[in-house]
Structure formats: structure tokens, C-alpha cells
Design a protein around this nucleic acid. Structure first.
Length: 1056
RNA sequence: GGCCCAGUAGCUCAGUUGGUUAGAGCGCAUGCCUGAUAAGCAUGAGGUCGAUAGUUCGAUUCUAUCCUGGGCCA
């Protein structure tokens, strides 16, 4: 028995049943075993951190990953799918800080690093259950049991080895640089981390005046009341201002404005001062301003070195500001460079925690951002502020804690990635990117501007940076394995030591150079280095795996992650493997765009528009959600997420598929059809040939698309096939073939074809939405479990059989469908429903289109038409008549004109037509033949009265609307059948039940019609006995009105 | 400010190697069909294919500029 899948079986419970089955029968693991004989297809899982709840955007990326892997597994590859978890880094630390009520590094140190890290380790998997649940629930087959975790010792050892390779190649250095710094987290950030946190924000926009204290060029007096006009959006850096910079080539103006003299670049004068609000006193070239001194705004720090004077710098622009740039070497990359070049002193009046230093007395201890208004007020009180406003601009924030970043001079460790930048660019060109512009554009451009990777973080929970420094001679050494650590260690190291802070900090090494004691540098490694190392570290390379085995698992053939990983994981993967192996660690990369809410806005907690995947899945199921994501738009386009559309996917696609299966199951059960998987090579039925052809075309297209990661097209292809072609055309057209009793040949073939189509659809769907097709497939193959196997996921997806593709037929069927549509439209217009048979349809189709009798029969049946005539000749449906053109003929015939008119108007349609063919019409005027040409006549074309005509795209259909008494009788009989069937259903009968039937009416015409078609009616309705008199004790009775006429239907069930 | 993506029906999206009348689903209206039935089919209304200019016999499609939205970067 084929199980029916009724409405009561919700998508939710259907899916649960299969998920349980997979668990119970170990289907995933077994699928791996089955495929182990195939060549490998490598997939790398980009590790998520399980310390946040998975969102709907995680569902799409996990779906894409799953589809990529499943498709390859079903087309001849062994796809190992090792899961992984990211566990280190700031996100974890920050959530623990919150949890413990700590707010900065100092407090963490006071709390104790050991305890702090213990909490971090525990918190990593706060939402592990949710992650495992969603992974499992959406059917993402991922080996979570053997997942790598970046905090595991073997993983860390691998990272150490990698760092040591960089170190030994001379690519690791310690640098003192200005870098983006999060004062709250107390750590510098790498460029790709900074890139994650740009936000539009409102900052003060302040123009300050810095008073000149040396004479202007060619003058000797110090000018009175004269100021440099300087713009900044970071007032707190003014405390540490040490110089001003101008561009040597720009023209600067000394202007009088509101009683004081200001210096400003010419291009900005109108914008800043207001057009006409100033009077130009003098002009200078930037270079002339060099070395002019000015009064410091603040005098917190004394220095021997010269400061507070004008410098020249190329980076000064006239895009905004005043063309005079304030320089605080501690708080800007360029400022720092200039400061070094000009030997400015170092003044850094913000401490590592982001508070104003003690020296800056009135503001000391304030968070740098909070000091802004007070600094501005102070300057304002001293009359040094020209203008205050605010401006919205894009400013970097810490990607996890959301504090504003500052440029801050720090020391840190770097990897000289610029040394192999060209190799990375070359490797990037070899990666197949979806969409391509990510690779060539966003990522490619970024690689061209590659800067060295700042890999150290002054934090706690991370892979400790494995560099030890000799306390005596300063030698540095990068430990490359635990074995080497033990070897060089002063104290013995226990077997199960914890390679984290603070334990590792206590380990001292013996300096190989001077024999002194070496201490580890205190930093941890950027957690992006962890994830970027995963191709190696997930196997503990080079320790836990042989080179040979490793190279079979490297590089990845396919990865897929959110587009925000471009400068994150995509970069770190490329950088590390390009250095170690000279190649990219991935060949194909699908980048997945944002999921927006239904209004096109980014989902965010603050807007309360974040879709909860658990709820969506509970309502509509995981397969519909997956299918929706795939079909709604390409994964690399931003997708608007709309729950209603998921529901629509469920109803339109999944329910249609189930209905189609249910239809098959219903009849296949009755007839006891057992599939053998064979479809005859020659099919008599044109619908069968067509469906098989379409099916093979679909397989061919599907494979082509999926091979090219055009998953959206593939899914849409399946969907259109199932809904339009399989369900609404093939099954609907063929229903009758399944109705008769007995398993005769034609019916057997019909079952085979439908079975094959359903099986194939399940196989094609399986990678995309794996659960539902598993259930249907298993039902379809139930009778041959041994032969077919336990799961659709053990199957290899069919290859197209090109011999079965008949493009001619597919095209012709296109015409059939079009003819049917036009026929229905014509019936609509003529207000003739389909149950009323009609005598004739005339179709006018383009030349060269020939339809076989079988296809013509399809049109006939579908439209309930007795005969169809094809014609290139419009004469058959149109009537032509002619009228005289008085303009030309009037002059010619003068008084005879009236007679001529009569003659012309009396021309038959055929005569007019003949004239149209040879361009000559002749009439007999009083025995004289008179010849007329085209311009003498006005020809009118009208459909013949018995036709209703419709046309579209070069096809014209005319139906003959004349209804003869015979046709009418037949129509009435069909109406009667329809009412009987409805009655049967109301009475709750099975479609196979036989009945005794009585049809009672007072209307003579209806009664005669029934009498005339008694046999057909009885046949159609499985009536063993048909009476025209009332039954004694009917099981069910119902009165219907046909048009104006009453019909009483009574029926009883007959036990067979 | 630079780069990338998108802009097609009320909404979500197809499509166009440049070619007669630009499509689907949803929603709305009307009709039909129903032995798959909480489905299905057809029809209708609804489009300056973001704007302008250019190339061309012909542009929604190619080119340029601009506008709007999104992303990335400065």
C-alpha cells in the first residue's frame, strides 16, 4: 500500500518523521560510507560561534552549504562534511564581561584571567543546543560529532606551527603603529575587523581658531587677532594637537571676517565663511605658511622638541574642512608619520582605557567621547571657536562592543602579508566567485591595497601568541609544537596542560642563544587567524595527519558564507594557505547576501524586525523555508524575507507535489501497481512521450545549472515542471487513464511514467529540500526496498537520456496548450461552458506547425470539441464583403453607380476572396464585364456568425458555437454526470464504489437526453443500474437545478 | 568622494546574444472546471521596463551621464 499524505499530516510532522528516520537509521553516516568509493569533493565549514542564537540568515547560508554538498554527493563524489566551531575572540569575551559585570580590562585582571577564561570557555556553547537543533532541523548534514573547535589543544598546536612558519620566514615583526583601537576592549583591530563596523554617526563638526604667533611672510610684526581656521570632528584630539598641516601647492587666503583675520584655503572660504562674508586681505601659497608658529590651544605638556607650527603634507585636501589640518601624532596614521618625519614630540593624552590622561587636568578621567562637549565649551569660553555644528558621517565602531574606535599609537605584532600580496592576487583570480564581481571587485580591490596583518590582540581568551622573548638578550623565538615547547621549557610541562592564558604565560623557556630565560609576549592571536587556519588546524596539520592524506582534503572545492566574510574568513583563508601552500584554500566561493525584512530594511534587534527561524519552521516547515530562499532570488542578491511567501511556497509547490503523489497513490493502490523502474522505450501515448521528454530536458538543465551553482534556476525549473507540467497538465489530462478497472497495458505504462516522473522529481529536489522528497521517494519505492535502497540520498541523480528528448514534440505541445487557452477564452466570450460539446474548432497556426492526431485529440478532449480543422487560410472562419469606393468609382460610372454598388455588395465572400488573391475583381454590368482593382473597393472582414474567434501570438482559434439538438443532449448528459459525481461525493462514497442510481425529472428534453446517453452516464458514474423512476430506499438523495430544470438524484451503494 | 549590486505591474521576482503585442506568482475583479478538491484553469484591470542623451533601421536590453535604494570602502 502506498501511504496517502492527507492534509492532517502537517509539513511539520511529515518532516519530523523523516528527521527521526534519518537519526534512527543513521542515514547521513551511511550515505558517507556508500559514497566513500567516489572521488573526494572538499567542503570547508566556516565556523560559527555558538554564543549567539542562530538567525534566519544562518538558515540560508547553511542551506546553500548543504545544497552544494548534497548535490555533489548525489552526482558521484564523496563529500566529507566536518563541522566546526569558532570559540575564541572578543565576541566571547564581551558577552562574558557583561555576564560578570566587568567593564574593562583592568577589572578582568582584577577578577583573574584564569577564572575569566574559564567562563569564556563555558560560554562558547551557550547556544550550542539551538545551533545543533537548527542544523539538524533544516536537514543540514554536517558532522557535528567530529567538529573542530578552535580552542582545542590540537587545533592551537596547528596554529602555533603556522605562526612559526611565518616567523621563520621572517614575515612576523613587531611594529609600533597607529592602528584602529577599541579603548573599551583595550585592543587594536585589524583592517578587516574595522571594515565590519562602519556606521553612520553624528559627530561634532567644529571649526577652531588657532592664534598666530609669528609674523606672516614679508612682515616683521606678529599680527594681531589673526588665526588659523582648523576643522575637526574629534575635539578630544585637540588636547594632543602638536602641529598644523597645509598643502604646499594650494592657495590660502588671509581674510577679514567679523573683526578678526582668518587663514583658510581659497577653495573652502565660501563654504566655511559664507559667500561675501569676508574680505580678502592677502593670498599665500601653502609653502609660504611653512614654519609659522601658533599658540597651543592647551598647555598640558611641556616638551623640549619644537611643536605647534605649520608643516607641509600631501594628504591635505580641499574636499572638506579648511585646508589646514590639525595634527595629533598619537591619534592618526598620517599624523603619526608626519610627526616622525618632523620629529614632533609624542603627546598622547588619552590612556589605554580611553580616558583623558591625568595631565589634562580639567578633563582628566573622562571617557574621551564624553570630553568632547567640555572641550568645546572651554574653547568657546576662550573665544577660540569659530563655528560649531554636527555632521553625519561614516565612522568605524568596534564590531562587537560598538564603542567608537580611535586611531591610537600602539605596538603590536604583524604578519608581512604584503610580501606575498601578488601571489594572493594571482590565487584570487583562480577562485570561481559567485557572483563574480565579489572576486574581481570587492575582494580583488581590497587585495591590491593589502596592508600587513596585525595579528596580536591584547586580550585574554584566544590562542596565545607563541612568541617568546629572551629577558636577557632579546632573542625572539616562535614555538612550533607542543613537543618543542616541552623541550625548551625551563620547568616540565604536564601532559594535559591548557594552552591558554594564563597557564602559558607562566611557561619560561631557555634561550637557545644566551641561555637566559625567555618570557612569552603577552598577546593572543587575532581570532580570524584561528578560522583562517581551519583547512590545516581542523586536522591538526602537520601533526595529526600525513602530508599525503592532507593533500586529498585540501583545498576546498566549495565554500559558502555571508558576503560580510569577504574581508574576514575569505581573506584569512586565502592569506594563510597562499603562504603555506602557494594556493588558495578554496576553489569556488558562493557569497550570500543579506536577508532584509519585507520592507527591504536590514534586520536588527533595535527595529524588532528579526525573523526567528524556529517560529517560521514550526509554522511552515524547513523544506518550504529552504525552497523559498532558493527560489525567491539568487542567494547573492539581497533578499527580502516575507513569511507569507514561505506559506505560499508550501501551498503552491509542496502541496501540489503531495497532491500529485496522492493521486498516484490512490490509483496505484487500487490496481496494485508495483514499480520495476522501467519505462518502455517506445511510448504509444503522446502525453507519455511528452512528459518523458520534458523530464529529460529538465534533468539536463538541472545538472547544467547545479554544476554552475545556479541553484535558484534549478529550483525554479523543478517547481515549474511540477506545478505546470506534471500536475496541471500531465496528470489532469491523463486522469481518465487511471480510472478504468484492471491493469491493462496503457494504464500500466501510465503508472510507470508517472512513477518515474515523481521519483526523478524527488531525486532532483533532494539536494535542495531534502526532507519531503525523502518521504515521497520512500513511499514510491516501498515495494522494493532492497532494490532501491533506504534513502533517496543514497541515490545518484539521473543523467538525461537525450534519445528520449523530442524537441519537436515539446514545441508542438506548447502550441497545443496555446490552442487550448485560446479555445477556453473563446468559450468564455461565447458563454459556453466546457461541458457543452461543440462541433468544430478551426485553428490557424503558423506555417510548418503540424500536430499529430494524438495532439489534436488532446485539444479536442480538453475543449470538448468534436472536430478540429487546421488551416492556413483565414477564409474558413471569416466572411469577406466589399463596398464600393465612391471616390474612384463615382467618376467612372456616374449614373450607373447605384447599380454598380448593388453588384459589388452582392459579391459573395468567395468572390471577394478570389479577387484578393489575384488583385482583380470583375462584375457583369449589363453584360459588359467590368474590371475593378483593389483601390475601387473597401473590403470588410468579419468572422462568420457561427464562429467566435480569438487569437494571440500568431495563432487564431475559432469555435463553431452552433449547438445542434444532439450536441445539446450530450451537454445535458454531461451536466447530469457532473451532478451525479457531486452527489456521490456528498454521499461519502469511495471513487471505486458501485451504485444503483435513479434520475428523476419532469423535463422532457432532459429526460430524453438522459435516455439517449444512459450507457455513458452509467459508465462514468459506476452505476450498475440506472432507473428513471424513484428508488425505494435510497442511501442518499439530492435535488439539483440544471438551468431552469429540476433533476432529482437518488443513489444506493451496491456491495460487490 | 570611489567601487560594486539593484531599480520591470500595487507587492515579490523572471526575461531581453538589440526585433512584432515585455512575463509569472501573490493581491483584486469576473467566469470556468473539478473522480487530485481547504486545490486548479482562464480572462480582465494594472507597465513612460528609474531619468536623460547617444549608438542603431530598431533600445527595456548596448554606451555615457544623472536620480533612488542597498552593500563595500575611504
Amino acid at each position: 500500500m502506498y501511504r496517502k499524505l492527507p492534509k492532517e499530516l502537517t509539513q511539520m510532522s511529515l518532516e519530523q518523521e523523516i528527521l527521526d528516520f534519518w537519526d534512527r537509521e543513521n542515514i547521513f553516516i551511511r550515505s558517507l560510507e556508500i559514497n566513500s568509493k567516489f572521488p573526494r569533493f572538499n567542503f570547508f565549514e566556516g565556523p560559527p560561534t555558538a554564543n549567539g542564537k542562530p538567525g534566519v540568515h544562518h538558515v540560508i547560508s547553511r542551506t546553500i552549504k548543504d545544497i552544494g554538498c548534497r548535490y555533489k554527493a548525489m552526482t558521484g563524489y564523496y563529500v566529507e562534511r566536518k563541522g566546526g566551531w569558532d570559540s575564541h575572540g572578543l565576541p566571547v569575551e564581551i558577552s562574558v564581561e557583561k555576564q560578570l559585570g566587568l567593564s574593562n580590562k583592568r577589572e578582568i585582571l582584577d577578577y583573574g584571567v584564569e577564572n575569566f577564561n574559564k567562563h569564556c570557555k563555558d560560554s562558547v556553547f551557550t547556544y550550542l543546543k539551538e545551533w545543533e537543533f537548527i542544523t539538524h532541523r533544516i536537514g543540514f548534514w554536517l558532522d557535528l560529532e567530529n567538529a573542530y573547535i578552535t580552542y582545542q589543544p590540537y587545533y592551537i598546536q596547528s596554529i602555533w606551527w603556522i605562526i612559526a612558519q611565518f616567523f621563520n620566514a621572517g614575515l612576523v615583526y613587531k611594529g609600533h603603529k597607529v592602528l584602529p583601537y577599541c579603548a573599551r576592549c583595550g585592543t587594536g583591530l585589524s583592517d578587516h575587523e574595522v571594515a565590519l563596523g562602519y556606521q553612520d554617526t553624528e559627530d561634532p563638526s567644529i571649526y577652531v581658531m588657532m592664534k598666530l604667533r609669528s609674523p606672516l611672510p614679508e612682515e616683521t610684526e606678529i599680527p594681531v587677532n589673526t588665526y588659523f581656521l582648523v576643522w575637526t570632528t574629534t575635539p578630544w584630539t585637540l588636547l594632543s594637537n602638536l602641529a598644523l598641516a597645509v598643502h604646499m601647492d594650494y592657495e590660502y587666503l588671509l581674510v577679514e571676517n567679523d573683526g578678526r583675520n582668518l587663514l583658510i584655503v581659497k577653495e573652502r572660504a565660501d563654504a566655511v565663511l559664507g559667500e561675501g562674508n569676508y574680505r580678502i586681505l592677502r593670498k599665500f601659497k601653502g609653502s609660504e605658511l611653512k614654519d609659522l608658529d601658533y599658540d597651543p590651544l592647551f598647555d598640558f605638556v611641556e616638551s623640549d622638541k619644537r611643536s605647534h607650527y605649520v608643516l607641509l603634507a600631501d594628504y591635505v585636501t580641499t574636499d572638506d574642512g579648511t585646508g589646514i589640518v590639525h595634527i595629533a601624532p598619537a591619534f592618526g596614521k598620517e599624523d603619526y608619520e608626519v610627526g616622525k618625519r618632523c620629529d614632533l614630540p609624542m603627546v598622547q593624552l588619552v590612556d589605554e582605557q580611553g580616558n583623558i590622561s591625568q595631565e589634562a587636568i580639567p578633563f582628566a578621567g573622562k571617557w574621551f567621547k564624553d570630553a568632547d562637549p567640555e572641550i568645546v565649551d572651554d574653547l568657546k569660553n576662550r573665544g577660540l571657536v569659530f563655528k560649531i555644528g554636527t555632521m553625519v558621517h561614516s565612522y568605524p565602531f568596534c564590531w562587537r562592543c560598538e564603542s567608537p574606535l580611535i586611531q591610537y599609537a600602539r605596538s603590536g605584532w604583524y604578519i608581512r602579508t604584503t610580501a606575498f600580496k601578488d601571489e594572493m592576487i594571482r590565487e584570487n583570480d583562480r577562485i570561481k566567485w559567485y557572483p563574480p564581481q565579489i572576486g574581481s571587485g570587492r575582494f580583488g580591490e581590497w587585495l591590491k591595497n593589502n596592508v600587513d596583518w596585525a595579528i596580536s590582540r591584547e586580550r585574554f581568551w584566544g590562542t596565545p601568541l607563541n612568541i617568546w622573548i629572551c629577558d636577557d638578550c632579546g632573542k625572539t623565538h616562535a614555538i612550533e609544537s607542543f613537543a618543542q615547547l616541552r623541550e625548551m621549557s625551563v620547568e616540565p610541562i604536564p601532559e594535559d596542560f591548557n594552552p591558554h592564558k594564563p597557564d602559558v604565560d607562566y611557561m619560561k623557556l631557555k634561550c637557545p642563544k644566551c641561555g637566559g630565560q625567555m618570557t612569552r609576549t603577552p598577546e593572543v592571536i587575532d581570532c580570524w587567524f584561528d578560522s583562517g587556519s581551519m583547512p590545516f588546524a581542523q586536522y591538526g596539520y602537520p601533526f595529526g595527519i600525513s602530508e599525503e592524506e592532507f593533500m586529498t582534503k585540501f583545498p576546498a572545492d566549495f565554500i559558502a558564507e555571508g558576503v560580510d566574510q569577504t574581508r574576514g574568513w575569505f581573506y584569512t583563508l586565502l592569506a594563510i594557505s597562499t603562504f603555506l601552500k602557494g594556493v588558495s584554500s578554496y576553489k569556488t566561493c558562493v557569497s550570500i547576501e543579506l536577508i532584509l525584512d519585507k520592507n527591504g530594511r536590514k534586520m536588527s534587534k533595535s527595529k524588532d524586525n528579526v525573523a526567528d527561524p524556529f517560529k517560521v519552521i514550526e509554522r511552515f516547515g524547513a523544506d518550504p523555508l529552504r525552497w523559498y530562499f532558493l527560489t525567491t532570488s539568487q542567494p547573492w542578491l539581497p533578499t527580502r524575507f516575507d513569511e507569507d511567501s514561505v506559506n505560499e511556497t508550501l501551498r503552491k509547490f509542496f502541496d501540489t507535489l503531495r497532491n500529485t503523489y496522492n493521486f498516484f497513490a490512490l490509483y496505484a493502490d487500487i490496481d496494485g501497481f508495483i514499480p520495476d523502474g522501467e519505462v518502455p522505450n517506445t511510448l504509444d501515448n503522446v502525453m507519455d512521450r511528452w512528459l518523458v521528454s520534458r523530464l529529460n530536458t529538465l534533468i539536463a538543465q538541472y545538472r547544467e545549472w547545479m554544476d554552475d551553482y545556479q541553484m535558484t534556476r534549478a529550483a525554479r525549473g523543478i517547481q515549474n515542471f511540477v506545478i505546470d507540467e506534471l500536475s496541471n497538465w500531465y496528470v489532469r489530462r491523463n486522469r481518465r487513464r487511471y480510472w478504468g478497472s484492471g491493469l491493462y497495458d496503457d494504464k500500466l505504462v501510465a503508472y510507470k511514467v508517472l512513477w518515474q516522473a515523481l521519483i526523478t522529481v524527488c531525486e532532483l529536489m533532494a539536494p535542495i529540500a531534502p526532507i519531503t522528497p525523502e518521504l515521497i521517494w520512500r513511499e514510491l519505492t516501498k515495494s522494493g526496498r532492497e532494490k532501491w535502497g533506504d534513502s533517496v540520498h543514497f541515490r545518484q541523480i539521473a543523467k538525461p537520456n537525450y534519445n528520449l528528448i523530442d524537441e519537436q514534440l515539446e514545441m508542438q505541445m506548447g502550441y497545443v496548450i496555446k490552442l487550448v487557452e485560446l479555445g477556453r477564452l473563446a468559450r468564455n466570450i461565447a458563454k459556453l461552458n466546457v461541458r457543452q460539446p461543440l462541433s468544430q474548432l478551426i485553428g490557424i497556426v503558423p506555417e510548418g506547425i503540424e500536430l499529430s492526431q494524438a495532439l489534436v485529440d488532446v485539444v479536442k478532449e480538453e475543449l470538448n470539441i468534436k472536430s478540429i480543422l487546421f488551416s492556413q487560410n483565414e477564409k474558413t472562419i471569416y466572411k469577406y464583403s466589399a463596398k464600393p469606393n465612391f471616390k474612384t468609382l463615382g467618376k467612372r460610372f456616374k449614373s450607373e453607380m447605384n447599380h454598380v454598388k448593388e453588384l459589388i455588395e452582392s459579391l459573395t465572400s468567395d468572390e471577394v476572396c478570389r479577387g484578393m488573391e489575384n488583385g482583380d475583381w470583375s462584375i457583369m454590368l449589363d453584360d459588359h464585364p467590368v474590371s475593378l482593382v483593389e483601390e475601387d473597393l473597401v473590403i470588410k472582414v468579419t468572422p462568420k456568425p457561427e464562429f467566435t474567434v480569438t487569437s494571440d501570438k500568431g495563432i487564431t482559434v475559432a469555435i463553431n458555437t452552433k449547438i445542434t439538438p444532439e450536441l445539446r443532449a450530450e451537454g445535458l448528459a454531461r451536466e447530469t454526470v457532473n451532478r451525479i459525481q457531486n452527489t456521490r461525493k456528498e454521499a461519502g462514497l469511495e471513487v471505486t464504489d458501485r451504485i444503483e442510481l435513479a434520475l428523476v425529472t419532469m423535463d422532457e428534453e432532459l429526460r430524453n437526453s438522459i435516455e439517449m446517453h444512459k450507457k455513458e452516464i452509467a459508465n462514468e458514474t459506476l452505476a450498475s443500474k440506472l432507473h428513471l423512476e424513484p428508488l425505494e430506499n435510497p442511501l442518499y438523495m439530492r435535488e439539483w437545478i440544471l438551468g431552469q430544470v429540476k433533476l432529482q438524484i437518488m443513489l444506493s451503494k451496491i456491495d460487490s
